[in-house]
Structure formats: structure tokens, C-alpha cells
């Protein structure tokens, strides 16, 4: 009758590195671990009610994306209270703390400078290795729009690569 869900530990063992990669790419090295942990806690809570076991990796990464967006909004809200709001627009969280920790700082700085939706789409595609239907679900858009966002982002990133 119900879906046959694998033991949750199997999901953790198989996907924790991917969840951490996506969390760090979207939320930066400061919030990355918290976002990943939060995603796992939410996934565990919701797991028994899951209706389908066909794309568990996509489900986990979609939750991770949502937690990263929540962290982003929370941080922006806190920042607004303390800082000049104008300074926020230029520094999305994935870039703010990127400097020494991320492998190719130049790339990540330019990823951070992309429009939000393009940045999320290109990270979901190439860091999380998700297909367009899953990215579309995460972003709440159509798969065609997901393809557009990714190709626009890549075009910008390639523009002045060496």
C-alpha cells in the first residue's frame, strides 16, 4: 500500500556530502553547516509521510535549497536591523565570507554577483547535479525557465574567463 522507504541512515550515508556541498555553495562557509544540519533535521521529520521514493536525492537537495534560502532571508533581516540596507544587495551570503575558504574565489565571487535565481539555478545544476524538472520544483518555475536561467548564468560566467 504505502511506499517502500529505505532506512533513513542509507540516505544519510549516500547523500550527506552532496547536501553539504549544496548548502555551502548556496549559504557560504559560515552558514553552510547549519543549513545542511537543518535540512537533515527537516528531512527526518517529514520522511515517514513521503509519498514517493523515486527521487530521494532530489527531495533532500530541494529541502537543502529551501533551508539555504531561509537562512539567506534570516540573515538579510538581521542585517537590515544593524547595517545600511544598501550594502546588502552587493554581497549575497555565499560571497560575503567566501574569500579564503572557497577553492576558486574569483569564480565564486562572480557566481555571487549573478541575479539570485540564476545563481540558485546554476548551483543546483552543477554543484548538486540535479535535472531541470527537479530544479524547477525547487525554484517554483517551469523546466524551460530553469534551462534559461542556467544557460544565462553560464554565459555570464564564461564571458571573461581566461
Amino acid at each position: 500500500m504505502g511506499v517502500r522507504l529505505p532506512p533513513f541512515q542509507h540516505l544519510v550515508d549516500a547523500h550527506w556530502r552532496d547536501v553539504a556541498r549544496l548548502a555551502h555553495a548556496l549559504a557560504g562557509p559560515v552558514d553552510g553547516d547549519d543549513v545542511a544540519q537543518q535540512a537533515w533535521t527537516q528531512a527526518l521529520a517529514a520522511y515517514p509521510q513521503l509519498r514517493s521514493a523515486t527521487n530521494l536525492r532530489g527531495w533532500l537537495l530541494t529541502i537543502t535549497h529551501r533551508c539555504a534560502m531561509d537562512a539567506h532571508r534570516g540573515r538579510a533581516r538581521r542585517a537590515v536591523l544593524h547595517h545600511d540596507p544598501a550594502s546588502l544587495a552587493a554581497t549575497p551570503p555565499s560571497v560575503a565570507a567566501a574569500d579564503a575558504t572557497l577553492p576558486d574565489t574569483d569564480l565564486w565571487r562572480r557566481v555571487g554577483a549573478l541575479p539570485d535565481r540564476q545563481r540558485e539555478a546554476v548551483v543546483l545544476k552543477y554543484v548538486a547535479d540535479l535535472d531541470h524538472p527537479t530544479i524547477a520544483t525547487a525554484l517554483g518555475c517551469s523546466p524551460a525557465m530553469s534551462r534559461r536561467l542556467v544557460s544565462d548564468a553560464l554565459a555570464t560566467l564564461r564571458k571573461d574567463l581566461p
Partner: peptide
């Protein structure tokens, strides 16, 4: 090495498994 998609694929942050 000049392709952003390869740089994304090699992204490997220092991290640890979740705890419950």
C-alpha cells in the same frame, strides 16, 4: 580548467556528517 561547470563539480567544502 576554464569551464565554470568543472569548477563547480570539484567544489569540496570541509564538512562533516549531520548529527541526530
Amino acid at each position: 580548467s576554464a569551464d565554470p561547470t568543472d569548477l563547480f563539480a570539484g567544489f569540496d567544502p570541509a564538512t562533516r556528517p549531520p548529527t541526530f
